[in-house]
Write a protein that binds this DNA or RNA. Structure first.
Lengths: 154, 154
DNA sequence: GCGCTTTATTTTATTCCTAAAATAATTTAA
DNA sequence: TTAAATTATTTTAGGAATAAAATAAAGCGC
C-alpha cells in the first residue's frame, strides 16, 4: 500500500467519526445526567473495580491519561459525592478511589443510556461488519502503541 | 444488530485508534516543526484556499470548531509570521486569513512528513481494505451529523 | 439620519488534557 | 538513625476546545 492519498482520506474519516460520536455521547451524558464523558469513564472504571476501588496510578493507566488529569477530573466527582477518596492504611502515599452508593446508583442509570446510544450508532452494521471493522483497526500501525501483536520487549 | 456489547467494543477500539494516531501525528509535528496538529490543520486549510485566503467563519466551519477557537489558534501563527490577518475592504467586520510566504514554505515541508506518517499507519492495509473501512465508517449513525446520505433539508 | 437588529468576530470563563515542578511518604544505605 | 533516593500524588502553567457574553460594524425601518 503506497498510496498515501487514500490513507489520508481514511484517517480524516476515522478522526471525523470518532470526534462526532464522542461529541454526541458527551452531549447526551451532560444533558441527561450532568456528567461529562471523562467523568463517566472514571465512574465506569471504578464500577468495574468494585468495592476495593482503584489506586490513582492504576486508574490513570486504565484511562490512558496522566495522574494529574485523574486528580483534576475526580475532584468534582468527589465534591458531588459520587466518588470517595481515601488514603492507604499501610502506605499514606497511596490514594484509593471508590464509588459511593450515590455514584453506583447514578452510574447504573447512565450505563444503560450509554449502551443504547452507542448501540444505535452501530445499528446499521451486521455482526460480521463489526468484526471486520475491529479487525482492520487492529491492523493499523500506530507508533508507540503497545497493542501490536507479538511485540514483546526484546 | 441488537448486540450493544460488541458495539461498545467497536466504539472503544475506534476511539482508541483515533486518539493514538492523533497523538502520534501531533508529537511528530511538534518535535520536527514546533507546530501542533490544530495549527497544522489551519495552515492546511489556508493552503488549499490559496491566495484569497478564508474568512474566519468559513475557516471555523471547515475545521468544525467554534470561531472563538479559530481566533485563539490563529494568534500564535500570526505572531510567528506564518499567517496574515487582514480585514475586508468593503466590510470591516470581516476578517480574512491567508498564508504568508513563510507559512507556505513551512507547510509544504510539513505536509510531506504528515503524508508519510499517516501513510505508514495504513501501510499494512490493502487498497480494498481501506475502501471497506471507509465504507463501514460511512454506515455509522451519528446523531446530529450531516454526513448521512440523502438527508436534505425538509 | 437615528435607533434597532443582524452579522462577524473577540473575549471570558470553564473543562479536559499534558508536561514538568513541587510535595509528601516510604525505603535504603551508610 | 538519619541523609539520600525512590515512589505516589498534587500543583502549576499552558494548549486546545466549548458556550456564552461582549464588542464592533453594517443594514433597516421609518
Amino acid at each position: 500500500m503506497r498510496e498515501p492519498r487514500e490513507a489520508i482520506r481514511a484517517w480524516l474519516d476515522l478522526l471525523g467519526a470518532s470526534n462526532a460520536i464522542k461529541k454526541s455521547v458527551d452531549t447526551q451524558l451532560r444533558s441527561e445526567f450532568g456528567v461529562s464523558i471523562s467523568r463517566f469513564d472514571i465512574l465506569s472504571a471504578l464500577e468495574r473495580a468494585g468495592p476495593d476501588g482503584l489506586r490513582a496510578g492504576v486508574l490513570s493507566q486504565q484511562l490512558m491519561v496522566t495522574e494529574g488529569n485523574t486528580t483534576q477530573v475526580t475532584a468534582p466527582l468527589i465534591r458531588d459525592g459520587l466518588v470517595k477518596r481515601s488514603t492507604g492504611r499501610k502506605d499514606a502515599r497511596i490514594v484509593i478511589f471508590t464509588l459511593t452508593k450515590k455514584g453506583e446508583k447514578l452510574f447504573s442509570i447512565m450505563a444503560a443510556g450509554h449502551k443504547n446510544w452507542v448501540g444505535s450508532v452501530f445499528s446499521d452494521l451486521s455482526k460480521s461488519e463489526i468484526a471486520t471493522f475491529r479487525k482492520i483497526l487492529r491492523k493499523l500501525n500506530i507508533p508507540g502503541s503497545t497493542t501490536q501483536p507479538g511485540k514483546d520487549a526484546a
